[in-house]
Amino acid sequence: MRKGVGDSGLAGLRAAVAALERGWGTTGETRPDATLPFGLPCLDDHLPGGGLTLGAVHEIAAGGPEVEHGAAAAAFAAGLLGRLSGPVVWIGPRRDLFVPGLASMGLFPSRLLMVEARRDALLVMEEALRHPDLAGVVCEIDGKLDLVASRRLQLAAEGCDVLGLVLRRSRRFDDPALRQPSAAQSRWRVTSLPSAPPLAHAPDVPGLGPAVWQLELMRCRGAEPATWTVEAPDAQGRLAVAPVLADRPAAPAPARRAVARRAAGHPHP
């Protein structure tokens, strides 16, 4: 009895706080947040609601020198949107997306509406986020996204279950603008890692396996920052957990192995 009261009391308080945060008032309608699960237990268990919250804005940036083109970040976004259904608005400053590449992540051009906007990009995104029939809105921004602008986007997204993604790009390596606080629901950083050999049992065979990313959750409402190593999305837009060995050198030198065996056979006193 006591336990039940305590549980419902805590859950009720949490719901009330969430409702206050989203501007719905203290009582009455509170709806559970719709989420898009990643399909990976290690990620979904970590995130509040078991996935990426819909009806919210998430920031994605690339790490290191990739930040200028942000190909891995765009692939991450395309994979997420590829698992939703419905039209997607993709706003960008340049026409450098390659549609066959997006289609290989499950995001087909029939669903895509492209908008070329540079200065008005955030305005366009806000407008698009208010449209109820869209599955997602992606906006690529060069440089700054301040607290006020991101708050506006977040409020616009809360009206319906649309997935808002902001892709941060910058011509500058390690741009301080990318570290400024924003009101996004979560912030992600996608950095490429050296991939594993395509055939684990034959590391000398040339070729490429799936790309491997370091996926960093840098900030998220209701979750701790965390880092995962994942494989790039497949044709259905699903991520996979990368083999643990991915980070190691491809082929350990045989000489070393010999040394190790000898060491094991003749332990030092």
Binding site: P109, M114, E116
Partner: peptide, 17 residues
């Protein structure tokens, strides 16, 4: 949505691939 964006950004800025 398309009409509003086209009228704001000008022709040719809203398209499909």
């Amino acid at each position: 949505l398309v009409d509003r964006l086209t009228n704001r950004l000008g022709p040719g800025k809203v398209y499909r691939m």
